[in-house]
């Protein structure tokens, strides 16, 4: 024999998975929405996403070099963070903002806590929230999508519009779709589904996000519990209580509108499902998802901000250690 066989502790065989494959799968699932954002918002979208990815990867690479740590770039997690930050940017954001968000996400939120696996908050969301509160105007200037991005016209997101319009609601408005119409921004559910509305680069097309999310869930790259619990509980709360602000009764909310707008799909399928910052057990993940759904509803319905996904997930991230402490599997021979 040319070389000695390996000596190892059991198990002697291994499933084919790896961190790189997990992250690679997430990148593949995000790709259609990335392409669509470029189609809708033009080359500036490509620039923003590329700058976020480059800033994330370079920050992590430099930190590894500076502190003589092993190279971690090939696990692709920095690239995933970069893409998600890009996805969370308004279409004509100045490029320095996603770069700052990426550096903050990687250096402060991820790396300083020990790198992949040790961060307790989703780095991409933390980066987004950091720049959101630092450059509020740039982060809330939206453009209407036009194929090719020519003649970008600015305008509020659907959620932003209704937040404003709800303050002086006139007679005969029975829901958010009618409200948008009366505010001079008529839209259809199909527009919302396909992403023909102002919004962050990667969040607008619910359809492509759902396709990507289904791909991840079916391949078991991410779990089903969080998206189902998140979207389900959010829909339930919206259905039950959102109709009341339009003068309707209980259980008259417009579920479809709320599912298709804002960052809900991106958040529920790609951000809340970040395994590092979500609970370990199935039951824990369901609680986590329901918490995200409830908080997103509360912020959208009662908050000052039109959007609640980022803050809801970050808040639930903080609760994850607590959930993991109290929600455990039933142990064999102990808990029976």
């Amino acid at each position: 024999m040319d070389r000695l066989p390996l000596v190892a502790t059991s198990p002697q065989i291994h499933a084919p998975g790896s961190t790189r494959k997990v992250m690679g799968g997430v990148l593949a699932a995000l790709a259609p929405a990335a392409v669509w954002s470029i189609v809708l918002f033009g080359w500036h979208a490509a620039l923003v996403i590329a700058a976020s990815v480059a800033a994330s990867v370079i920050t992590e690479g430099l930190l590894n070099l500076a502190f003589r740590r092993n190279n971690t770039l090939d696990d692709l997690s920095a690239a995933v963070t970069g893409v998600l930050i890009g996805f969370n940017m308004p279409p004509d954001v100045p490029v320095f903002i996603p770069v700052v968000a990426s550096v903050f996400a990687i250096a402060v939120v991820k790396w300083s806590f020990g790198g992949l696996g040790s961060n307790w908050m989703n780095p991409a969301l933390a980066g987004r929230v950091f720049v959101f509160f630092s450059w509020g105007t740039d982060m809330t200037r939206w453009t209407l999508p036009g194929i090719g991005g020519a003649d970008a016209v600015s305008g509020p997101t659907p959620l932003g519009s209704i937040k404003v319009a709800l303050s002086n609601l006139s007679e005969g408005i029975d829901g958010p779709m009618r409200l948008l119409e009366s505010a001079g921004m008529p839209t259809t559910y199909l527009d919302l589904f396909l992403g023909r509305m102002p919004g962050s680069l990667g969040e607008v097309s619910a359809m492509l996000l759902i396709i990507g999310g289904l791909f991840l869930v079916i391949l078991k790259i991410v779990n089903w519990e969080i998206p189902v619990a998140y979207i389900g509980s959010f829909a339930l709360f919206m259905w039950a209580f959102d109709g009341m602000q339009y003068g309707g009764g209980i259980f008259s909310g417009d579920i479809l509108f709320h599912l298709l707008t804002g960052g809900l799909m991106l958040g529920a399928l790609f951000m809340a499902t970040d395994m590092v910052t979500s609970p370990l057990t199935r039951k824990g993940r369901i609680i986590f998802g329901m918490g995200c759904g409830l908080l997103t509803f509360v912020i959208r319905r009662f908050g000052n901000l039109p959007e609640g996904v980022s803050l809801a997930i970050i808040f639930m991230n903080i609760l994850v250690p607590l959930i993991d402490r109290f929600v455990k599997p039933r142990r064999y021979g102990v808990d029976s």
Partner: peptide, 26 residues
């Protein structure tokens, strides 16, 4: 090809070990 061993990387807290454990451990 059968062994498929790789160098260990950081735990992602993905919970797959929890789902695999026949004894209900974490």
């Amino acid at each position: 090809k059968e062994v498929k061993s790789f160098a260990p990387t950081a735990c992602l807290s993905c919970g797959r070990c929890v789902e695999a454990c026949p004894m209900g451990l974490v």
